[in-house]
Nucleic acid binder design. Structure first.
Lengths: 240, 240
DNA sequence: TGGTATTTGTCCGTATGTATC
DNA sequence: GGATACATACGGACAAATACC
């Protein structure tokens, strides 16, 4: 819920950290102070702080306070984070992009495909190949597999815009969880045909399984990125 | 805290999911049922479930229940996840490894180095280059930068074993947060000298900044992985 | 050295809202 | 509409780590 109290507080604190009102290496006000400032319970403040920690903005130190560990990224060429469509990622990075659909097919999952996609044999799917141009450069080739009973009536025209937007705004579907695997793979003929590989002989490959609000695995995607413009950020806390 | 109630419940549920007592695509028992089973408050159950969701085991569906989305990984060759030392990662994957220190130096951070490491100019550091052999194969080259005032009295002998183990068990330091950046870079002469690149001309590069319990950035590391054995897993929830 | 205040961590109980069935 | 299930929010109590005098 975007309008929830803890999210409002999270956004407020995040902005203050990004604008260095609360600066790197300093402490956040204590939970008690924040409770007074935002007029809420301690649990609500703690929830907002937990989200800040998950996002890599702060870390809590028992008995001391909450330390700010956020530092501004310099030149985030292309930043992939959380679950978001390419359209969203590009918008966040204030860039332009276009998509060319080079393959659009309706298939039924066989045993070989079940291995990769985790769709049961017999599932009816759309299979797409799409080339993504960012700022005019061909940077990514996507191989998408969508369940036809979830992503209904998909067309090449929709696939040239945003499948996620179509799902959420037209079909009323909600995307919830994505599990991703990141590897580096040698390039294929298809890669070299569509991407200017700039001397690299391999690509950054993001393979993802995505679940909707019903807990149904509805998408398997392999995104093959030209290495020079690919960046992936991650943040982890050690279990105490 | 490992012994905390919510962690005990988390571990218990995780194990049941991994052993398919609660199987893929099924629902977890309701929060109410789990409260009775584990004799605790609903908050504690919810906390355990949240951790399961963060780890990619389940996803909650409002009004319906908690869906299990965990599927066993087949052959995880080398799995990098969370914050852990190479020693821990290798142990988890039940493999053998050795380390060769090919450079061990004490330096002072200059402006050029400040850019990459985020250490202030003038910081006294150890700079190490280490080759990591897993199952006898040279797979990784690490470039480590450690603050000398935190990682005290480091020696090549310690660096051949485990720096994290030394920090936690000897120095009593606690590692808390790691921020990582993942890129793909062309190989250097050093890479080709020590790694058998198997025809690849680039590597998976994990750059990480690590903070201790005092909120001090004490480590910057660049790990350069031979691509064919590198896998990175990630899991994300879409903000509702 | 020791005691007290501060701050974060854990856990519980309750009430209300919202989505699903 | 009613029952069930998850989501949000509040409040309180005690523990544990730290800081300060």
């Amino acid at each position: 819920m975007p309008g929830a109290k803890y999210n409002v507080i999270y956004d407020s604190l995040k902005e203050k950290i990004e604008e260095a009102v609360y600066a790197y290496a300093n402490m956040l006000p204590s939970e008690h102070q924040l409770v007074e400032e935002y007029d809420c319970s301690r649990n609500t403040i703690r929830r907002a702080i937990r989200q800040l920690a998950d996002a890599g903005y702060v870390q809590s130190i028992h008995g001391k306070g909450v330390q700010i560990i956020y530092q501004k990224q310099e030149q985030a060429e292309f930043l992939l984070s959380g679950i978001e469509s390419l359209k969203e990622a590009v918008a966040r990075n204030k860039q332009e992009y276009t998509t060319k659909v080079i393959c659009f097919a309706e298939l039924t999952v066989d045993e070989r495909m079940e291995q990769r996609t985790s769709f049961p044999v017999g599932t009816e799917i759309y299979y797409l190949q799409r080339v993504r141009y960012i700022e005019g450069e061909a940077l990514i080739i996507d191989h998408n597999y969508f369940r036809r009973d979830v992503v209904k009536d998909l067309t090449p025209e929709i696939a040239e815009k945003s499948v996620y937007e179509y799902m959420e705004q037209v079909l009323g579907e909600t995307i919830v969880t994505t599990k991703r695997k990141l590897t580096v793979e040698k390039m294929t003929e298809l890669d070299t045909k569509y991407l200017d590989m700039k001397g690299y002989n391999c690509l950054a490959v993001v393979s993802s399984h995505t679940f909707n609000a019903d807990g149904v695995l509805f998408e398997y995607t392999q995104s093959r990125h030209r290495p020079d413009r690919f960046v992936f950020f991650d943040q982890a806390q050690r279990i105490k």
